[in-house]
Amino acid sequence: MSWRRRTLPDPNGAELAARLRDRDRTAVAPALNLVDDRRPNAREQARILLEALEAPGVQDKAVRIGLTGAPGAGKSTLLDAMVRRARNRGESVGLVAVDPSSRHSGGALLGDRIRVRSGAADPGVFFRSMAARDRLGGLAEGARAGVLILGVAFDQILVETVGVGQSEGEIADLVDTLVFVAQPGAGDLMQSMKAGVLELPDIIAVNKSDMGPIAERTASELEAGIGLGVGDRKGWKRPVLRISAQEGHGLDGLEAAIAEHRGWLADSGELERRRRRGRDRAIEESLTLRYGSFGVEALGGRVRLTACLADAPNEPGARLLARLSDQIELALRSGTSESTP
């Protein structure tokens, strides 16, 4: 009857990976906890887990979609609607929502799942909230690992961040399709355009389009902004869609656009490039976090790092990270720098 403690076995990366590949839902939370765990033994098991999940073909199934936008734009409402629709189609959904950490206390309030009620007790939906930790407004280091884990166990992955600072850049590398949720009213929009964050999204959705003229003006401004060449690239013409997440308007169109973009990614070879870029960014970030720029210098500097990454296009990120970490540690211990290319 009481809370008697069982001795839990140490999490085993290989075993968790196997269970995830069998789509065992009960392996998802322990896997996420493991990659978040900073103790040395856990680090090693996490590497084994992620390496297995990055093996060729393992990550091919899930569709990864990112949602970003200013607070109040209606991201959570849209998330809720998208989950409901995916479930109606019989697809399972994994969600990651990232909220900022407090600079002062290090704590965080992760309040978003409150507005995403679809599937609150539905095993076909998995929701993990993450704190951005020491990097304000940015994505948690664990978000990429989270996407890899959920991407094995669920059909559709949705990643949500508050669109401030550098988070769009990071989320853009994690997902296949990035949707920017714009809210009617121009104020923050001009700000976004100035900050250049509109260069990243693949699809722009103007929410609350039932607000009429204000929404229409916002959409037109965005279309004009894109028309003026704010980052048109490589044959993908970024659509500006009018939706209302609350009323359910325009969501068919949004899903069609996401599917179309995904098709374009696959056909153009951009999907592979994008995922590799995501891997590289995450490795650079982790190395910098662990060893600082001094450590990267010890490896031979940015140029050398970039070359190392380019030399191993198909190596799983976790293994590559471990290899480069070993090199840095060796260099730091021996006090020499392999700065000659």
């Binding site: 206390s105 704590g107 409150i114």
Partner: peptide
């Protein structure tokens, strides 16, 4: 709880 450094999942009301 946030102010003392915890990561807080606030789940809100009316839950089963």
């Amino acid at each position: 709880a946030r102010d003392v450094g915890m990561e807080v999942v606030y789940e809100g009301i009316r839950l089963t």
